[in-house]
Amino acid sequence: MSAVMPTEPAAASPSMRSTKSITQRLRYLWYLSRRSPLTLVGAAIILLVLIMIIAAPMIAPYNPDKVSLTARLLPPSTAHWFGTDEVGRDLFSRVIYGARASCGAAFMIVLISMSIGVLIGCFSGVVGGRVDTAIMRLMDVVLALPALVLAMALAAALGPSLFNSMLAVAIVRIPAYVRLARGQTLSLREQVFVKASRTFGASPFYILRWHILPNAMSPIIVQATLDLGGVVLIAAALSFIGLGAQPPTAEWGALVSSGRSYMLDQWWYATFPGLAILITAMGCNLVGDGIRDMLDPRLRGR
């Protein structure tokens, strides 16, 4: 048997490598990104925000909560890059610390709604029948709820807090993932490899875990990155109207909200947190678009 092996024509050529080195992968990533510089810009923004989240104490020049009544409402200067607020807290430090609350919340929201949505969607698609119909109609109901209204209702019932508003936004975002995951499941379920796996005795759980989930993930990841930008906006909006993070907490939406009353005379107070929201949301959208283009071979060929 082994004597025939080397002459076997179908044996793949030795030049075919099974594992790519990290530098190769990075180079490939670079090659893909170079085609769309905007994706790189978006990635840079997200990287920046990540650094802000992780290394906030190292970057921020002041304690974000330190009140200094002698330094109230100072305009941007070398000492206070973004100026100070009405009790003399350094706005630059507050914007940097605000990334933790704002982006942390947005990330959690997307993570929660994605995991719950994907689980429900795959389950619904695999089970099918009446259960599937019931779940999908329930999702239609949830889809009809406006995030802000649900957040207000939750805030009214449980009191305003960042957690409650996160919960509200997460619930409203679930149906999008359910529909996406269910659609993927329905089409994957009919794939030959799923049928083949059944002929080898695979259980429904195995099929869900190893065949459906990994193959359904790429559009879901794209959806999640695109969602991130929108959720940053919504989280900020909720804090802005007072339903999310409460005032002493440094959070971009809350900062804009309290800066609102000083808009005419102290422009920097609302402007810099607002810019932070704008830039972060834009960065998420750019990366989301970029990932979608990379994963879609039809768009990759341009």
């Binding site: 794939q191 030959v192 490899f193 083949a196 002929t199 080898f200 190893w210 990994p214 193959n215």
Partner: peptide, 24 residues
């Protein structure tokens, strides 16, 4: 049936291109 399939009887399919999971 899951215990029968694969152990007592297994199937070879027509489309080898699609009968393996592309992600594993």
């Amino acid at each position: 049936l899951q215990d029968v399939r694969g152990k007592m009887v297994s199937t070879i399919f027509q489309e080898p291109m699609n009968a393996l999971n592309p992600t594993i």
